[in-house]
Design a protein around this nucleic acid. Structure first.
Length: 213
DNA sequence: CAGTCGATCTGCT
DNA sequence: GCAGATCGACTGA
């Protein structure tokens, strides 16, 4: 019953769901030491109307989970080496989701450090979407998994975080046509040290010497 | 400290 | 064939 009502809280527009996820705690218990992350930064993807979204071109094998019901994890593999995780939100079929961009490790830090190959500071354990996924031990085996069912556990706050504590700005790494990158669809807890450093979307990397090597 | 580049999977043209 | 919801190593000052 809890699960049902918690899931329904995510079946809302991405902007609203973002304020539920900020401050929530996601745990992955793979049988070893459980690792928990307090979410401090998310990015909204608006499904098939959003040029920056994987779902913009329609349903594929990879983005299939995005088109399903809210409360499931969409995990994708990118750049040949990284996993990133989204929490599906909104109504089923709309393919909206929230990319987990950064968080603070609240328990299981030892395991997280090992998975991340011992970064300089604990602030770097889950600062960035691929880092967060790696710290939690998330890979594509968890694509489609229910965040309210083992081995995952998502604890939403009783109340959404007040808007006054949240900042917003352009999405990172998205340089889509139509000024997509101008929409303030990235949300973070103002002043939190674990929020990822803003890096403008790379315009395009073209061969500098006119000819490829 | 800031800028550049390689790694290498997935989906679209 | 190419660009991408990234990260970390390396360069040079």
């Amino acid at each position: 019953m809890e699960d049902k009502s918690e899931r329904s809280r995510l079946a809302v527009p991405a902007t609203e769901a973002a304020h539920l996820l900020l401050g929530s705690v996601l745990t992955h218990d793979d049988g070893g030491e459980p690792v928990s992350v307090r979410v401090t930064e998310v990015e909204a993807y608006m499904g098939d109307v959003d040029p920056g979204s994987h779902a913009f071109r329609g349903r594929t094998a990879r983005n299939n989970t995005m088109f399903g019901p809210a409360g499931h994890l969409y995990v994708y593999f990118t750049y040949g080496m990284h996993y990133c995780a989204n929490v599906v939100c909104g109504e089923e079929g709309h393919a909206t989701g929230l990319l987990l961009r950064a968080g603070e490790i609240v328990s299981g830090a030892d395991t997280a450090r090992m998975r991340r190959n011992n970064p300089r500071t604990d602030l770097d354990l889950a600062r960035g979407p691929a880092r967060l996924a790696q710290a939690l031990g998330i890979d594509r085996a968890l694509d489609g998994a229910d965040v309210f069912t083992a081995p995952l556990r998502l604890e939403l706050p009783a109340e959404p975080v007040p808007h006054a504590l949240v900042s917003s700005g352009p999405r990172v790494g998205v340089s889509g046509p139509g000024g997509t990158d101008e929409y303030p669809w990235r949300y973070w807890l103002t002043g939190d040290p674990t929020v990822s450093k803003y890096r403008p979307a790379q315009p395009k990397r073209r061969p500098a010497g006119a000819t490829a090597r």
